[in-house]
Amino acid sequence: MRKAQDNYVLDLAQNRKGLALNRMCGSLKHAENRKRFSEDEAAYCDAYGLSAEQKQAILDRDWTGMLDLGASIFYTFKLAMMDQKSMQYLGGVFTGMTTEEFAAALRSGGRKFG
């Protein structure tokens, strides 16, 4: 997987771009929706009107691709939880680290700026 860019900002334009994607991921907070999603992921994506690119990113679990397509990490995490992935896992994906490396970086004080 490729590393995410360092400056994702969920501004109004990105929010609009990812509206369907974020709604779909957000819907996974309900058990019945998680069940429906698990039964047919592609059809579930279609029901939310995802673009072809957004749908493919979901099906491929292309986490950085989802961000490029307007996803919010907070909604994307609901999908990651479906795959039993932690926030540390996603942090690793987005920084080009393993989950363990990312967790160790957090324990040591995280990324330093300056």
Rank of each mutant, 00 (worst) to 15 (best):
Q14K: 14
V9W: 00
F102D: 00
L10K: 00
S72C: 13
D60P: 08
D83S: 05
Y75D: 06
N7C: 08
V9L: 03
E39A: 11
F113H: 13
R61V: 10
D46C: 09
S108G: 08
G18H: 08
A80L: 06
D11G: 01
D46Y: 07
I73V: 15
V9Y: 01
L28C: 03
L12F: 15
E39K: 07
M87W: 10
C45P: 04
A52R: 09
G65N: 02
K35D: 10
A31K: 03
S51Y: 11
Y44T: 07
F74R: 12
T64M: 10
D62N: 09
T76Q: 10
K3P: 08
S72P: 11
D11C: 01
A52N: 12
D60T: 09
L79P: 06
M66Y: 07
F77V: 14
F37G: 04
N33F: 08
R107A: 13
Q84D: 10
L90T: 04
K85I: 07
Q88T: 14
T99R: 05
A104F: 07
L50F: 01
N22P: 04
E101T: 06
M87Q: 12
Q54F: 04
M66G: 11
E101W: 02
Q14P: 04
L106V: 01
G96D: 03
A47E: 02
L79E: 07
L50T: 04
A4P: 11
G49W: 12
M97F: 07
E53H: 12
